[in-house]
């Protein structure tokens, strides 16, 4: 590999570097700054070393939030990815229904996140909401503001409703890029529809599905607005996900040091898990 040394090229990268520095690196560094110091107001800071990190990593409260977060993320991935692929497979390939389906699918993605939370909050209220009334009318004791199980059910259902479309759209795009000849060739071979899915459609969708899983993983791990509006982390702490807990520590208790340490750990967990996902899914595609 020959690389030409061209130092002028750095000037072209500079604007982007500055932009990234302002909107990502500098804020991140202030967080790093907070995470290693103790503060008593009046802008008095004292060096604290790794004290906050130790505290956070030993805290049972953090373990519980992280556990809830992992449970939430893996539940919605386990539902949204297979469901999204199934819907994409069932969607028509040509004709006027294609655009109708695509627009319908895109709808939930267009709604602001806090509105999604509000819609589901009202929709699921046990006494006046359509869903709550219906479930109770069927004899199911449903109350998401009181019973943790019901709160989780509502939270996951809401996320599935909101975000499965993204997986559908990506998977559909992947399917649409498979030439018709592949299906014909499989038909000539006498391949079953399962074999077509397993050996043609799935491998051909692999790249877009990797993107879908990564996006859904990162977004769901960062989720804040919808559960905040829907349950506010309750009942009790039962749906307090990492981001909600973080806000409680940072703004509720104004513990800047521990909150900063928690943010960094949170960030590293996402980074690590994203890398693991990417590596696992891209295994065997060296080039």
């Amino acid at each position: 590999m020959d690389k030409t040394a061209n130092h002028k090229a750095w000037f072209f990268v500079l604007p982007v570097l500055m932009l990234v520095a302002f909107n990502a690196i500098i804020p991140l560094m202030t967080v790093v700054n907070y995470s290693v110091q103790e503060t008593f107001g009046d802008n008095n800071f004292f060096w604290a070393g790794v004290l906050w990190f130790e505290e956070v990593l030993r805290s049972e409260r953090f373990h519980a939030s992280l556990g809830r977060q992992l449970f939430f993320t893996f539940s919605i991935l386990a539902i949204e990815v297979p469901l999204g692929v199934a819907i994409a497979l069932a969607m028509p390939r040509k004709g006027i229904w294609v655009s109708v389906c695509l627009v319908l699918m895109a709808m939930p993605l267009l709604i602001p996140w806090n509105v999604v939370g509000a819609i589901w909050n009202i929709f699921a209220l046990p006494n006046i909401g359509l869903l709550g009334q219906m479930l109770n009318g069927l004899g199911i004791d449903y109350n998401f503001t009181r019973q943790p199980g019901d709160a989780w059910f509502t939270l996951i259902t809401m996320d599935v409703w909101h975000w499965t479309s993204l997986v559908v759209l990506l998977a559909y795009a992947g399917l649409a890029s498979i030439p018709e000849a592949y299906y014909q060739a499989a038909k000539i071979d006498g391949a079953s529809s399962w074999a077509i899915f397993r050996y043609i459609q799935l491998p051909k969708m692999k790249r877009v599905l990797t993107i879908a899983v990564l996006l859904r993983f990162m977004d769901s791990f960062n989720i804040y607005t919808e559960p905040f509006v829907l349950t506010g982390g309750g009942p009790g702490n039962s749906t307090t996900l990492l981001s909600i807990d973080l806000v409680k520590v940072a703004l509720g208790q104004f513990d800047l040091g521990p909150a900063a340490a928690m943010s960094l750990i949170y960030f590293l967990v996402i980074l690590l898990l994203s890398w693991v996902f990417y590596t696992l899914m891209m295994r065997g595609e060296e080039q």
């Binding site: 030439p179 000849a181 014909q184 000539i188 050996y199 043609i200």
Partner: peptide, 15 residues
Amino acid sequence: NVSMVYQQFINYPNF
């Protein structure tokens, strides 16, 4: 019992 070869190179991608 026919077989066909296409203009695009059609093979099972992960075989």
